[in-house]
Amino acid sequence: MSPPVDSPSDISHSQDGSRERPIRRLRFSTAGKTGIAVILFWSAMVLVGPWIAPYHEAEFLDEALFIVPGLDDPYPATDFQPPGAVAWLGTDYLGRDTLSRLLYGARTTIGISLIATLLAYLIGITLGIAAAAGGRVLDSSLSRLNDAVLSMPTIMLGLVVISAYGSSLPVLIALTSVIYASSVFRIARAFGLDIMVSDFVDAARVRGEGLGWIIRHEVLPGMILPMASDFGLRFVYIILFLSGLSFLGLGVQPPQSDWGGMVRENLAGLPYGAIAPLVPALAIATLTVAINLVVDDISAHHGGKLAGEII
């Protein structure tokens, strides 16, 4: 329909890309590799966790399991037990297996966070591009609304909404994705505006492409890569936010296990040195630190490439 016009993506795909512009391969530092390993580990746990868990998440361990031979105690305590052969990571305040709850909770915590992040991206990118491509009125009204959402501390917005709607999985996911869509919107709009005024978009317009084509073939491909590293960070924020809500008792409701909630319900064991509240908190920390390490590596790589192009 129209003669091929060079756009940046055409150039790099046209011939042997490595000859035209040497693409530095993304090399991960030791820290980054550790991060990837941890992320892979937890992804595997999300997939198979409930099957390899020794018990069900809501199962109270039988007292008979804790009877110590030689001690004449037919009814031993089952709550806040230290790690042992029966429960590898000890038991929680109701005598449930911490390891099993951790494995079930991986699916809840990571699953909900991932869905919320994806939804936030869907909303944020859609509205961001709409604002960038849709004209002045749409842009400024969307931006003002977005400023208002951004100007509220996330936890406050969460508390207000949960006080009104109560806490359930759909409410949590919708709430989180709307809150974090506002920051995605800001980035997507900025990139979108940049790309919309570029020469290759002008060229596409001149040769008669429609707005839909331009968005699909020029705008979206141009913003995917820089937004990918933001995805990791946003995912971390969402995990922390949802865990914080759970910790306040306003997130995922029992008996479903969830890492933030597990910390809260076992806090009472802290003065006795029980590890039940620490295990889920450390699980969150390993995952979020791991993602941050990988993101750091990727953005360092981007930075290096950018600097190379400028010089």
Binding site: S243, G260, L270, I284, A285, N292
Partner: peptide, 13 residues
């Protein structure tokens, strides 16, 4: 980096 990526309640506990 470690401290900003862990939840506040872990620091507190």
């Amino acid at each position: 980096l470690g401290l900003v990526s862990v939840p506040e309640f872990l620091v507190a506990t």
